[in-house]
Simulated assay, not measured.
Amino acid sequence: MADETHNLITDVPGLCVGHAHDAGAATGVTVVVFDEAAVASLAILGGGPGVRDTALLEPEMTAQAVDALVLSGGSAFGLDAAGGAMSALARHGRGYAVGSVRVPLVPQAVIFDLLNGGNKPWASGVGAPPHRELAEQAVEDALASSGVFVLGTIGAGYGATTVNLKGGIGSASARTTEGHSVGAIVAVNAVGSGVIGGGPHFWAAPYEQNAEFGGFGLPPSIPPEALVPRFKGGPGENTTIAIIATDAALTKAQAKRLALAAHDGMARALRPSHALLDGDTVFAASTGRRPLGPSPYELSALGVAAGDCLARAIARGIFEATALPFPGAQLAWRDRFSPTPR
């Protein structure tokens, strides 16, 4: 990891992040663009995913690396975003060489944000959804970025919600004892809750670093009612989607294992998670800047760090979110609680 870190996925060398959103529609797109094509895989543990071009990420498939990964709002309408990212990357000469042409490989996952109060005529058959254009903007934003980006109500998390608080984009980073950097970025649109009971304490509190989501810790005790599952919306209205990145050189099979391990962080930070009503998806990507040692425990340590990072990123996405400016919009954590413990 670089000497100066920002507790963001961009602390992993070899990638950049960009966002774009449509405030009136209350939806957006986030992209992770790799400096060079990155080995990647994924794990889907939710029952209702929305994805594009993810079959190629399975370890037995021919393609070995991807140019970018896309997180988007819009539900299935938002799957146009990958095409926009492909167009933008093609203009920059990126992509898998096939004869005289290049085809950027850009897998994608979406969240459901169609009922958050935004103006979405395209969801009723009028006009086209904005996600293709937003993805092009997000790629250009990524390529021009300094590596620092804001969290909360932005990009793919612009219209995100949870059962009881506004969701959003979260990110976190860490370094393993072997020296590998690990980072997570997530769009938190969960069927469940990221806070214990009514809050302000986060389920992810044991993994918090440097008061990154308020420093409240755990409450003195967890009341039984906080353990009763609460569910938001109906089938297909939820999903938490994330990208884990590391500079450790991984094979696709190892990236698959990393994505599976990272899902532990989702279970630590959200109650419930991986429900039939969720599309919970985690991508894992390797920029390959540092060799991975021969010990299987080194990959296992990466998995622990990835899970911890994802748990922290989920809490940060809720902690940093701001409410949408619509009547009846869901309150944000900051609308209900002070950012510092009383």
Rank of each mutant, 00 (worst) to 15 (best):
G78H: 04
D80R: 13
G83T: 15
A85E: 04
M86F: 10
S87W: 12
A88V: 13
L89F: 11
L89S: 12
A90C: 09
R91H: 11
R91C: 14
H92T: 11
G93K: 11
Y96A: 12
Y96I: 13
A97W: 10
A97K: 11
G99F: 09
S100K: 14
V103A: 15
P104Y: 10
L105V: 09
P107N: 09
A109W: 10
V110M: 15
I111F: 04
F112T: 14
L114C: 11
L115K: 12
G118Y: 06
G118M: 08
G118Q: 06
N119C: 09
W122K: 07
A123W: 12
A123M: 11
V126P: 07
A128H: 15
H131K: 01
A135L: 04
Q137L: 13
A138F: 08
V139H: 11
A142K: 07
L143V: 04
L143H: 00
F149T: 14
V150L: 15
G152K: 06
T153G: 00
I154S: 10
I154P: 05
A156V: 07
A156G: 13
T162E: 01
T162F: 05
V163W: 04
L165N: 01
K166S: 00
G168D: 07
S171M: 04
A172C: 02
A172H: 05
A172Q: 02
A174K: 05
A174H: 07
R175G: 07
T176F: 01
E178M: 14
H180R: 00
V182L: 01
A184E: 03
V186Y: 00
V188N: 00
V188C: 00
N189R: 09
A190D: 05
V191T: 13
G192E: 02
G194V: 04
I196R: 00
I196P: 01
G197L: 03
G198K: 02
F202M: 03
W203I: 03
A204C: 06
P206F: 05
P206Q: 08
Y207K: 14
Y207G: 05
Q209D: 15
Q209W: 08
N210H: 09
A211K: 14
G215Q: 14
